[in-house]
Design a protein around this nucleic acid. Structure first.
Lengths: 349, 349
DNA sequence: TTGTTATATGTAACCGTTTACATCAATAAC
DNA sequence: GTTATTGATGTAAACGGTTACATATAACAA
């Protein structure tokens, strides 16, 4: 690999001049510039980014930590963030956090050692306190994706989970449901709590009681959704609809309900959250909340660059969730009410 | 950020000694080592990877170029490759090639400038000649994923497309089909040609004629699949099954067939290729060829590291495709044959 | 003419590591 | 008792860029 020194020799100039031509940040006469350009072309010269990063203390790389790299949710986020990063003349270094505290911390360390210009984090296992501490320990700017940490307000790209939970619960109430169960994600996570809070608020606004027996905590996994249904059924507190904390748990819930002889949505309505691609293809297609994760990825990249270059942040930080009505919920006319399902419910038990 | 010099001062040793402690590659007495470790902890020292890469000429990073980052196919590949990379104590730098020659070249340049230890490429737009030229121009090892370039035999992780095309076509023949249409991907791509070749071979083996009127070239996109069906129908050469070059085109084909009043698989069987996640969820679920893309990602990472470190390559390079039979194909008993469909076909036109 | 200023270029220090080489003491070999 | 050998450590030169500072030349004003 030729170096800047090889170029300077061939073009008969100093290395400083070559550097000036490369970065176009200081005046160079037209003909020296031409000589240098020719020399670079002849040698097939490529500047060494590590050396440049070492000298300038910036790498033009944005670091990103995600729960995992597969899956429609992260895929969309990553794809959009990468595109925007490229548009901003930067590159994206992605690492999987593996949903584990140690791996997430290791990933962050790695990126910091690499002198990334900013960090974009979509982390599960780190606490708000961890993140705040991290932000004080390093002066690398941090952007949190799909998470709201009050102390890091200016660094969050977030979506209002409470509104999402409220929207989808209200939708079920409008369909005529009065006994609505809820399967939440892990409640140590802020988004799970937010969605649950929205569920409560919608009930409250409709004058319906909040019944603890109808609420179970699960793990955002498909199997967890199945298992949660088992728990709900075993409690013998009837319900005619289930609000799930995400789409995957909704799939699990539907499967489990079917095993127990309920059909969706004829007997019981089920809703998801996230609007992953699958949700519009499954049978029945899933009524869910759309999270604009791609758009959030774009804005995360913008915010990261703005923070890194000291510009005034203009990236959109707060996003609104959107209700997507599909086949897993259906309008109940008042006469057929939910009574028949109650009886079937009891009979099934 | 503290540097190695700060540590050396605090521990009262030379920088060389600190480096020795960090890399554990030369003897250091127990108590100096303890002092150094303590100093590093006190300062929260993190070695600067750029400086290290500059000095050692290796970065412990594997570079990866993909068509795009979203989507189930790439997601799986990336997720598995990342995991294996981490297992090998390296990291993964991913860039999207955007299915365009310029962007792919730019992405490769970027990674080379970054001194990645090896390149893993899943590129569409670069020709075999481009890739061969690239391999001669740089001494960074290159691994090609899901692509076979004869001149770079030892660098390819590939799957036998011809066998895949043959498997799925033979399956249809075994179901009783004799008039099988084929929608291929772009024929400048080797994998499209391979699958088509497999289709021809299966026909040949069964003693069925190869009819050009039943073959159309498309673009591996869902819309392209729909459009291809239009072209096939307009040719008025009847068919009772369609072999599609990938799952997405199969979705498009099914949609288009339905618009024309055919139902799948009652009237016409349709098959895909790739076995993306969606394919098992759609209605009807798709008979397809499973490509072990995750496993290929793992082996790509292994091969990359082996090439970079000069080890003898032991990674598995050739993979076999697998037939997955689902709902979009069904057995035709000989008596009801395909005659009724022919008549319906003609009537629909 | 002389002093001032702007432009073009070169010199060399620096960024934070690694590592070849040198040094020195302690141990082993004869 | 001298000489290798080994182990622990230090010194300083890379690695390939950037950039503050110095210098030289040309243009311009007084």
């Amino acid at each position: 690999m030729p170096t800047i020194r090889d170029v300077s020799r061939l073009a008969n100039v100093s290395v400083a001049t070559v550097s000036r031509v490369i970065n176009a940040n200081q005046p160079v006469s037209a003909d020296t510039k031409a000589r240098v350009v020719a020399a670079m072309a002849e040698l097939g010269y490529q500047p060494n980014s590590n050396a440049k990063a070492l000298a300038t203390n910036r790498s033009d790389i944005l670091g990103m930590v995600l729960g995992d790299l597969g899956g429609p949710f992260f895929g969309d986020l990553m794809a959009q963030a990468e595109e925007e990063t490229r548009r901003l003349k930067r590159h994206l270094l992605v690492t999987a956090g593996g949903h584990s505290r140690d791996i997430e911390l290791e990933a962050i360390d790695f990126l910091l050692r690499r002198q990334v210009d900013a960090l974009m984090l979509h982390v599960d296992s780190l606490t708000d306190a961890d993140l705040y501490e991290l932000s004080t320990k390093t002066d690398t700017p941090i952007v949190l994706i799909n998470r709201y940490v009050p102390d890091l307000h200016a660094h969050c790209i977030h979506v209002n989970n409470e509104v999402g939970g409220e929207l989808i619960t209200r939708h079920l109430i409008e369909q005529g449901h009065e006994a609505i169960a809820c399967i939440t994600g892990p409640l140590y996570k802020g988004d799970s709590r937010g969605r649950l809070q929205g569920y409560r608020r919608a009930l409250e606004q409709a004058g319906l009681p909040y019944v603890e027996q109808r609420v179970v905590e699960s793990d955002y996994m498909e199997a967890g959704g199945s298992e949660a249904i088992e728990r709900l059924l075993s409690r013998k507190t009837p319900f005619t609809a289930v609000v799930c904390g995400n789409d995957l748990m909704a799939f699990g819930a539907i499967r489990s309900l079917r095993l127990h002889g309920f059909s969706v949505p004829q007997d019981i309505d089920v809703t998801g959250y996230d609007d992953i691609v699958l949700s519009s293809y499954v049978e029945p297609s899933l009524t869910t909340i759309h999270v604009p994760i791609g758009a959030m990825g774009v804005q995360a990249a913008r915010l990261a660059v703005q923070l890194a270059t000291g510009q005034r942040p203009t990236a959109q930080q707060a996003f609104e969730p959107q209700l997507v009505v599909r086949g897993s919920t259906r309008s109940r006319s008042s006469d057929q009410s939910s009574q028949p399902m109650h009886s079937k419910f009891v009979q099934q038990q």
